[in-house]
Simulated scan of single mutants.
Amino acid sequence: MYTQCPDCRTVFSLDAGVLAHARGAVICGNCETLFDALDTLADQLPPEPFRLLPGNARSEEAPRLEVAVYRPREDVPVAEPAPAVPAFTPRFVHERRAARKRPRRWPWVLTCALLALLLAAQVAWAKRGALIADPAIGSWLRQACATLGCRLPLVRDVRHLHLVARDVQAHPSVPGALMISATVRNDAPFAQPYPVVSLTLSDADGHRLAMRRLHPSEYLDDAAALRAGLAPGASAAVLIEVADPGKRAVAFEFGFE
C-alpha cells in the first residue's frame, strides 16, 4: 500500500502494521509532517507521471464488509486475542534518521569561500589600473604596500603628465640638426611609467612638417629608473635630436602617450 505526505508530496510504501500502530497517523520521513495515511491510502500507484495520489472520502457511517475470506466454525473456541505488537518506528522514519547523519558541510563552505576570494583577486588584478588611480582606493593600497613592504604596479595616466619647460636650438656638434629639450612632471599621486613622447614640427600655417615618437628607452638609458617609473611630483628631462626641416618649421608640439 502507498500513501502521500500532504506537505512535501513524498510517496511512501507502508503495510497494515504501520497503519494499525497509530490508527493511520504517521510522520513524514522527509519533512517531519504528522499526517493521516488513510487520507491518500492506495493499493497501486497511478501511471506516471503523477503528482498527487487520489484522496479517500471519509464517512461517519462505518462500511459493511460482505466479502469474507475466512469464517471460524462455531464449535471451535475463539482464540485469545494476540498480544499487542510491540511498538515500532515506521521504515521511512528510520530512513529519515539515517539521512540526518550527513557529512560535514564546512569543507564545501571553505572551498567556496576560497574560490570567491580567488575570483575577487583576479578581478582586482584585471582592474588594478583603475583601482590604483582611484584617489581613495589608491591611497589605501599605497599605505598597505608601504606597511607590507610590497610594490604596486606602475599605472599609466597621461592626463597627469604636464610639460613644464621646453626649448629648441641648433645642434652644437651636428650640422643641419636641431636639439630639442623638454621637462615633463608627474602630477599624479602615484608613480607612472615613463611616457612615449611625440614631437611634431609645423609651419606657420599649422601644416605638419615632421613628427617623431620616442619610447622611454630612446631618451632614458637608466634601466633602474625605467623600472621605478616617474615618481609622484617628480620631473624628467627629455632630449631629442632631429634633422633641421629648415626655416619653414616655426612651431613644435609635444605629446605624451
Rank of each mutant, 00 (worst) to 15 (best):
residue 120 A to W: 06
residue 53 L to T: 05
residue 47 P to I: 03
residue 67 V to H: 09
residue 127 K to I: 04
residue 130 A to M: 10
residue 128 R to F: 01
residue 115 L to G: 13
residue 114 L to G: 06
residue 35 F to M: 04
residue 76 V to E: 14
residue 45 L to T: 15
residue 126 A to D: 10
residue 72 P to S: 11
residue 40 T to D: 05
residue 49 P to S: 11
residue 67 V to K: 03
residue 44 Q to E: 15
residue 40 T to W: 03
residue 58 R to M: 05
residue 113 A to D: 04
residue 69 V to P: 00
residue 43 D to R: 05
residue 116 A to R: 00
residue 57 A to P: 02
residue 60 E to F: 09
residue 128 R to S: 15
residue 112 C to V: 09
residue 58 R to S: 10
residue 79 A to V: 07
residue 126 A to N: 09
residue 73 R to N: 10
residue 70 Y to D: 12
residue 69 V to S: 13
residue 113 A to Q: 04
residue 59 S to I: 01
residue 134 D to C: 01
residue 128 R to A: 14
residue 105 R to E: 15
residue 83 P to Q: 09
residue 106 W to E: 15
residue 58 R to F: 06
residue 119 L to H: 08
residue 127 K to Q: 09
residue 112 C to T: 09
residue 55 G to L: 06
residue 118 L to M: 10
residue 103 P to Q: 08
residue 69 V to E: 14
residue 100 R to K: 07
residue 51 R to Q: 14
residue 76 V to S: 08
residue 36 D to T: 05
residue 110 L to C: 11
residue 44 Q to G: 02
residue 71 R to E: 12
residue 37 A to M: 09
residue 46 P to D: 08
residue 72 P to D: 08
residue 38 L to H: 07
residue 55 G to P: 01
residue 37 A to H: 02
residue 108 W to K: 04
residue 134 D to P: 00
residue 90 P to V: 02
residue 36 D to P: 02
residue 127 K to P: 00
residue 117 L to R: 03
residue 48 E to M: 07
residue 76 V to C: 05
residue 64 R to F: 07
residue 131 L to W: 02
residue 104 R to E: 15
residue 116 A to L: 06
residue 40 T to N: 08
residue 35 F to I: 03
residue 107 P to V: 04
residue 101 K to G: 10
residue 127 K to D: 13
residue 109 V to F: 13
residue 42 A to C: 15
residue 125 W to N: 14
residue 54 P to C: 08
residue 102 R to Q: 14
residue 83 P to Y: 01
residue 119 L to S: 13
residue 65 L to C: 04
residue 53 L to P: 02
residue 79 A to F: 01
residue 108 W to Y: 11
residue 41 L to P: 02
residue 119 L to F: 14
residue 96 R to M: 15
residue 126 A to M: 04
residue 79 A to E: 15
residue 42 A to N: 14
residue 133 A to V: 02
residue 133 A to P: 01
residue 66 E to M: 05
residue 127 K to E: 14
residue 75 D to H: 02
residue 109 V to K: 12
residue 94 H to N: 13
residue 57 A to V: 14
residue 124 A to S: 12
residue 41 L to M: 14
residue 84 A to N: 07
residue 112 C to L: 09
residue 56 N to Q: 11
residue 83 P to S: 08
residue 100 R to V: 03
residue 46 P to R: 03
residue 104 R to G: 14
residue 131 L to V: 01
residue 44 Q to P: 00
residue 50 F to C: 08
residue 44 Q to R: 07
residue 113 A to E: 03
residue 59 S to K: 03
residue 49 P to F: 10
residue 123 V to Y: 00
residue 40 T to H: 12
residue 123 V to C: 04
residue 112 C to M: 05
residue 62 A to F: 13
residue 111 T to D: 03
residue 53 L to N: 04
residue 93 V to Y: 00
residue 89 T to C: 05
residue 83 P to R: 11
residue 81 P to L: 05
residue 95 E to S: 06
residue 100 R to G: 06
residue 80 E to N: 04
residue 91 R to D: 14
residue 64 R to P: 01
residue 45 L to K: 09
residue 70 Y to C: 05
residue 72 P to M: 05
residue 77 P to A: 14
residue 35 F to R: 00
residue 39 D to Q: 14
residue 70 Y to W: 12
residue 120 A to F: 07
residue 120 A to I: 08
residue 35 F to Q: 02
residue 35 F to S: 01
residue 107 P to T: 04
residue 87 A to T: 07
residue 114 L to T: 10
residue 102 R to I: 13
residue 68 A to L: 06
